[in-house]
Design a protein around this nucleic acid. Structure first.
Lengths: 235, 235
DNA sequence: CGTAGACTTGACGGCATTCAAATTGCGTGG
DNA sequence: CCACGCAATTTGAATGCCGTCAAGTCTACG
């Protein structure tokens, strides 16, 4: 990795939720340990079932974590952007990756090797705390996904996603840009692009949102929240 | 709690995945800190959204973790039996329970209060390691559930569950007892009792299993594994 | 034996998937 | 600046799994 990247790397590490607040010497040591990798769009970072080498951080680009069925269907568990760690759940001795990671765009990631990380973990209990917090958060995300899949219909999932994207204080008229292609979004919402398209249409027809390509305007956030909550009441 | 229970409590704690290997003095301290609770069948241990008091261990009985929709639908995330900890993901300051816990049978649980636990956690790094392992395992379970919901049809989910229950080396003719009522199992598999009933029937008709009440005999584990993997090929 | 709870079966409808085809968006070469 | 072509997205029509509603059956147990 070029010299010019080293400071960027240090910056990345220091901002990561896992290493936040770590002394400079540790960050420096980490920067020396970490293994950079380039991954082209559509290529895997690792495959489900492969023995864990460690966990990763997204340096540039986007990486999705997916489950694939033999029948070729795909469910996205999460899409990670710059600075985010992934595969932190596969850190134990002999662990295997429980899902596949694929680059959504041309990306650069860094591998934090398992052994070295464990050594650091033993030395710095603060990292354990951060890791526990991170794992707990991931559990909450997965619980929310299960809730979506089991308890909500496609339009309601979309509504919840849009509200999530807009953040808490979503005013009427607020606009959001979809950060991923619609096929990817469909996979994340547990459906197909066709169904997503129809769901967008449905909300747009009811003047709850307006869609212009990847730009979605929230015309009526309150109604959107109702729909997200599972209100079925059609117009 | 009666004196006679104290040794049972210590036994429970020492066998718990979180506290395994802890020095006797810590276990003793824990036993003094822990808060016993009796919960009748169908009653909640805690409700989704309530501020976390800490996490729990099942002493006697069974507790299910569920997500409820406004429409009244229910998805079970997990069913915990004797000795198992639950709600370990809600340990942070100000955390709220991300799902509801309900006793499936008349049960006794013990609460491990958040503050006290955190104090112990700071003192014994080994617990942090155990906790990380536990959270990672929970993540894998949830990923498996998502996979089921998104990628498999009801009969395939049932097949996977039965294989899970039978364990790795499932011989033809091996029998398993369903540990929970069929309504509960249906909720865990993300479906209804009617659908579960039909799925059992389907597998039985094909001579893959035999069902006698709660006893299920695996007549053809290989075929069952194929079905679990998503093979659709009907008879 | 009778009752309550657990489970099964049948009929019907809906949401989402699948297959197929049309349409739009957009980067690139002319 | 515009046309071409691929990729992304949308739309339409048919099918299917599963959920709902409503009876019916089984079984443990008093």
């Amino acid at each position: 990795m070029a010299i010019a990247d080293r400071s960027a790397l240090l910056d990345l590490l220091s901002r990561s939720p896992l290493f936040r607040g770590l002394p400079g010497e540790d960050l420096s040591a980490l920067a020396g340990i970490v293994v950079p990798r380039v991954v082209a769009k559509g290529e895997p970072v690792f495959l489900e079932g492969a023995p864990s080498e460690g966990f990763f951080l997204v340096f540039v680009g986007k990486v999705k974590i997916v489950k694939l069925s033999p029948a070729g269907k795909e469910q996205t568990l999460h899409v990670h952007g710059r600075g985010e760690p992934f595969a932190e759940a596969a850190l134990e001795e002999g662990a295997r990756y429980p899902a596949t990671a694929i680059a959504v765009d041309d990306s650069r990631v860094v591998l934090v090797p398992r052994r070295e990380f464990q050594r650091l973990l033993a030395k710095r209990p603060a990292i354990a705390t951060n890791l526990i917090a991170r794992l707990s958060q991931r559990i909450r995300q997965l619980v929310a996904l299960v809730e979506d899949l089991a308890l909500r219909e496609a339009p309601a999932r979309l509504a919840r996603y849009l509200l999530d994207l807009a953040g808490e204080g979503a005013e009427a008229g607020a606009a959001v840009m979809l950060p991923i292609r619609k096929v990817e979004l469909a996979a994340l919402l547990g459906t197909r692009q066709e169904t997503l398209s129809r769901a967008l249409r449905k909300l747009a027809d009811r003047r709850v949102i307006r869609v212009r390509g990847a730009k979605v305007t929230l015309l009526d956030p309150n109604r959107l929240a109702d729909l997200a909550a599972g209100e079925t009441a059609d117009l």
